[in-house]
Design a protein around this nucleic acid. Structure first.
Lengths: 223, 223
DNA sequence: GTCTATATGACGATAGAC
DNA sequence: GTCTATCGTCATATAGAC
């Protein structure tokens, strides 16, 4: 389950066309898998979403499971990419704020990707287990060491780094994964920009003040 | 979808026996639905988990959907019960800490119930939607008013109350719903008591300090 | 009330014409 | 490469003996 993009094929070539089709199928499948889960997403529904007969999906991916794992694979890239700001030489408050902003933005712009990931983990990560115990564990250990450095230097309070990551993931992804609940409680058909701003502000406040860092945002922007 | 327990039938009566059977089926179904989702949980699997032929499940519940909604219904009671501590006359720090402890305990002791609920909401809450927009919305409004009172009295920082609830729900339930991910990252077959203690401490720290309240726990108990 | 045996339909997957 | 028609399997649900 490692993605490795060799040099992409020339635009318009047969291989390029195939890749376009595959990308288009994966894009439409994201929503279907997100809303119905793996078992609930039928090949008919996936085909309808892609605007193709279902035989074509089997032509491109072979099995439903292969289509699903290809989708998971494409989603993983997004998951890992946002931690760049967490580096020893950066300011803790700025680094954590940038990370939270990136994760909140991801929940807003890619809710279906988040839900596919959530559904997979919720059901025990049968396909993603080795990735979680591999790349993700390595990443968390690496970034935890950065946080431990900041703590040792007295630049932030002694928060348990892995659990801090669990908390940040949970708070930010909940706006995608549990969006139905949040919309119901707030009584909105869709979350507004202000809702997202308030959510981001709340997460920033809890994490930054919780880590003993400055929290400089305005109290309630746009209230 | 409103539960209303009239006076329970006498012990040993026919109605009592039936209720026992129903409770037993629901208890075993919780795990199956949690691990496989609604579509992934087959009546055969549900029957095997209950130790009964699948025809019996149809005898007691009629349809798979009815069995599922009965289970959801039984889980909702748990969801609403933990907010008692949040009342105007209580101390904000103690009230929030008690709520967080209750939610964390629930994640540890009833992970399957949490997952069934999470799966339902993740897929758009098709059966639970009216409850979310009804009872839960009412509860959040009521408790938010308590928090707003505390804020107005200067007893805590001006945190957006509904978003604070979303954050607390997310952080506490993640230990059940995303347990597979947490176990993988921490490299444990099961979370230890210490893992749970550290998770609880982290959530308490973020919420209490994030709200400008005292956070009195030891730095790292049992380290 | 309990269970075996089965009806009915939807599913993933494929064969084969184009 | 694309699509229609169809195969075999497994799902939910039920009929009917005990």
């Amino acid at each position: 389950m490692m993605r490795k993009e060799a040099e992409p094929p020339a635009t318009g070539s047969r291989a390029w066309q195939r890749r376009q089709r595959v990308a288009q199928i994966l894009a439409s499948a994201e929503r279907v898998f997100a809303e119905a889960g793996f078992e609930g997403a039928s090949m008919s529904a996936l085909a309808a979403a892609a605007g193709l007969p279902k035989a074509n999906l089997h032509y491109y991916f072979g099995t439903k499971e292969a289509l699903y794992t290809a989708l998971l694979d494409s989603i993983l890239d997004l998951w890992l990419s946002a931690t760049d700001s967490i580096r020893p030489e950066n300011d803790p408050a700025e680094a954590l704020a940038a990370y939270i902003h990136a994760k909140m933005r991801w929940s807003r712009t890619r809710p279906y990707a988040s839900k596919v990931f959530a559904n997979e983990v919720l059901h025990g990560a049968p396909y993603l287990g080795s990735y979680l115990a591999g790349d993700l564990r390595t990443l968390v250990r690496e970034k935890s060491r950065v946080l431990e450095g900041w703590i040792a230097e007295g630049r932030m309070d002694p928060v348990d780094p892995p659990h801090l990551f669990f908390a940040i993931w949970a708070m930010t992804q909940t706006y995608a994964d549990f969006g139905a609940q949040i919309r119901a409680v707030l009584d909105r058909p869709d979350l507004t920009a202000q809702d997202h701003a308030r959510g981001t502000e709340t997460v920033l406040r809890l994490v930054l003040k919780g880590c003993g860092l400055r929290f400089g945002a305005a109290e309630s922007p746009g209230k």
